[in-house]
Design a protein around this nucleic acid. Sequence first.
DNA 1: CGCCTTATTGATAATAATATTCAGTTGAGG
DNA 2: CCTCAACTGAATATTATTATCAATAAGGCG
Lengths: 153, 153
Amino acid sequence: MLNAPVYTSASLKAELNEKGWRLTPQREVILTVFQNLPEGQHLSAEDLYALLEEQGEGISLSTIYRTLKLMSRMGILRELELAEGHKHYEINQPHPHHHHHLICVRCSKTIEFKSDPILKIGTKAAQKEGYHLLDCQLSIHAVCPTCQRSLLV
Amino acid sequence: MLNAPVYTSASLKAELNEKGWRLTPQREVILTVFQNLPEGQHLSAEDLYALLEEQGEGISLSTIYRTLKLMSRMGILRELELAEGHKHYEINQPHPHHHHHLICVRCSKTIEFKSDPILKIGTKAAQKEGYHLLDCQLSIHAVCPTCQRSLLV
DNA sequence: CGCCTTATTGATAATAATATTCAGTTGAGG
DNA sequence: CCTCAACTGAATATTATTATCAATAAGGCG
């Protein structure tokens, strides 16, 4: 089962140091932002940049991009393709919060849903091939009711 | 259940015309390329462009991009995030060929696997919300055995 | 069958997200 | 506390994808 730990500053530091990397104030701030995000919320790089700017904790866009990538590859964040043109990120929550996305390809309206079986199947598939699981997400591309009507699809 | 029809020129034309769109030689060629691609193969826009160039059936990159997008939104093609920086496309096959991807986030090595339950769950989720299903894919992000070793992850 | 409307194409330029470079800074181990 | 390499920020570069627009060609219709 996807074993995404709940990170504290200390455990983040430990995991970074183990690989020769460092805990920086910027990384701590970014992790905190995602941890405090209400469930179902996600941020693009620009969103995060703007949000931090507002909070007076400005972090450069370079660092934002670098950190988002790093944390995704560590399994701390999930990289989502919710709309055309840019990625969104959210914290990678363990079991009871883990969810998937139903996305309208026209208007990008997104609905979340949970599914234990999928998580199990994904975990098993990774295990079988000896892959170390980071994230497992079902993306359903579809047309929402509103767009079905307005575009006569 | 994801009901992706097997397209012929005629059925593609019918579906396009129904929406006021047109069947063009370029669209036919592109559909044919994807239909003849061995299972498990997928192409990026550039790949497709190069492949057609080779075959002497050059189609402009503009048209390639437009067509890939159009066919994805029609449910004819699936848009895959298999590597950083660009999308890949493959034909959207119905039931017995429908599959998912296990992807190494370091080297992009990808393994395909099938799962009926996932397709069922996805179909049901879309149905429940009144969404018209186009595609349904489980993406598993993980680190492959080779990269686990070489990077001491 | 041929006309007319309008979607489509191809070439080019524009956009925008993300990556890179590099000098200065700062974690972390010793 | 010292050293060194990882990290940051600012600016720049890259590159996938989109938009623009004149020329072309589907397809509905008489």
